[in-house]
Deep mutational scan, measured.
Amino acid sequence: RKEMTAACTPRRRIINLTSVLSLQEEINEQGHEVLREMLHNHSFVGCVNPQWALAQHQTKLYLLNTTKLSEELFYQILIYDFANFGVLRLSEPAPLFDLAMLALDSPESGWTEEDGPKEGLAEYIVEFLKKKAEMLADYFSLEIDEEGNLIGLPLLIDNYVPPLEGLPIFILRLATEVNWDEEKECFESLSKECAMFYSIRKQYISEESTLSGQQSEVPGSIPNSWKWTVEHIVYKALRSHILPPKHFTEDGNILQLANLPDLYKVFERC
């Protein structure tokens, strides 16, 4: 597991931080080997919608929660590849102030007048994250320049770009939802926020969305749709870069829909 690298990086740093090793061990302890084997050997059937997909393993048909699986995938990559990410360069710098204002204007932020003026909160978020810029760049390849612009994001899987519609809320939550006081809790909560931002979430995906850094293989055609990215990038990574937690067998994120021999018997009677 320590050699797990989802995106190509030129050289690998050895990380011996106790906090990170502890988080890696927790993933191992909570892992479910049968689910790992199923995901490793599954045959992708198709997307139901951005949140759900169908896959077959041996004779069984499964309904998989793409949102939760991708979130767990990105969390584990962030923990196992800690401080070893490439950088996704933004085509132009994104001012943190503008991103924070967009987030505060969104109902998702939960902002009320009692929280104070949005401009003041946005300025605080910019200054707060600028103070964390060195650590964010060093460990997470999340790059913020001296003017308070976001200029780079971590490359977690080759050819995958997170849904940038979720970027404003991500920046807001970096400042408000991460435990910045304790090292282990900081790395864990920061990785979880980043994983949620990178995950496939239906509120940020339309039929026209593209999450891939590449064009489709047909010359002159439109960019790959999110469905292509889910199948050929995300579920491909799920084959080798995730140890599913045991609770996925109990919380409805992986559901067995049918045993195909039983279905064949039904059709034979028709």
Score class of each variant (00 low, 15 high):
1 R>M: 14
1 R>P: 11
1 R>N: 12
3 E>T: 11
5 T>E: 11
8 C>T: 08
8 C>S: 12
10 P>W: 14
11 R>H: 12
11 R>K: 10
14 I>P: 06
14 I>M: 11
15 I>L: 08
16 N>M: 14
17 L>C: 07
18 T>S: 07
18 T>P: 04
19 S>R: 15
20 V>Y: 15
20 V>E: 15
21 L>C: 07
23 L>N: 14
23 L>H: 15
24 Q>M: 12
25 E>Y: 14
26 E>G: 07
27 I>Y: 14
30 Q>V: 10
32 H>I: 08
32 H>T: 07
32 H>R: 07
34 V>F: 11
40 H>L: 11
40 H>R: 09
44 F>G: 02
46 G>H: 04
47 C>I: 04
48 V>D: 11
49 N>C: 07
49 N>Y: 14
52 W>N: 06
52 W>E: 11
54 L>Q: 12
60 K>R: 09
61 L>T: 01
62 Y>Q: 06
64 L>P: 00
64 L>K: 01
66 T>D: 00
66 T>I: 12
68 K>C: 11
69 L>M: 11
69 L>G: 00
71 E>P: 00
75 Y>A: 12
75 Y>L: 12
76 Q>R: 09
84 N>G: 08
86 G>Q: 11
88 L>S: 11
89 R>E: 14
90 L>N: 00
90 L>D: 00
92 E>R: 08
92 E>Y: 10
94 A>R: 01
94 A>V: 06
101 M>Q: 03
102 L>T: 03
104 L>C: 01
104 L>G: 00
109 S>L: 15
116 G>H: 12
118 K>L: 15
119 E>A: 04
123 E>N: 02
125 I>C: 12
129 L>G: 01
129 L>W: 02
129 L>R: 01
132 K>G: 03
138 D>W: 04
140 F>R: 01
146 E>K: 02
147 E>G: 04
147 E>I: 07
150 L>V: 07
151 I>G: 06
154 P>F: 00
157 I>A: 13
158 D>S: 06
159 N>C: 07
159 N>H: 08
165 E>D: 03
166 G>H: 13
167 L>Q: 00
167 L>V: 03
168 P>A: 10
168 P>D: 15
169 I>Y: 13
169 I>S: 14
170 F>Q: 00
174 L>W: 00
175 A>C: 15
177 E>S: 11
178 V>M: 01
179 N>P: 02
181 D>G: 02
182 E>S: 05
182 E>K: 03
185 E>H: 04
186 C>W: 03
188 E>D: 04
189 S>P: 01
192 K>E: 06
193 E>V: 13
198 Y>I: 00
199 S>I: 01
201 R>A: 13
203 Q>C: 10
203 Q>G: 04
203 Q>W: 11
205 I>S: 08
211 L>E: 06
213 G>Q: 05
214 Q>S: 05
220 G>I: 12
221 S>K: 11
221 S>C: 09
222 I>F: 06
222 I>W: 12
225 S>Y: 06
229 T>I: 10
232 H>D: 13
233 I>P: 06
236 K>N: 13
236 K>H: 10
236 K>Q: 11
238 L>V: 08
245 P>R: 05
245 P>D: 14
246 K>G: 12
247 H>N: 03
248 F>M: 04
249 T>G: 12
252 G>Q: 06
252 G>Y: 13
253 N>C: 07
254 I>V: 04
256 Q>W: 14
256 Q>L: 11
261 P>E: 07
262 D>T: 09
264 Y>A: 03
266 V>A: 15
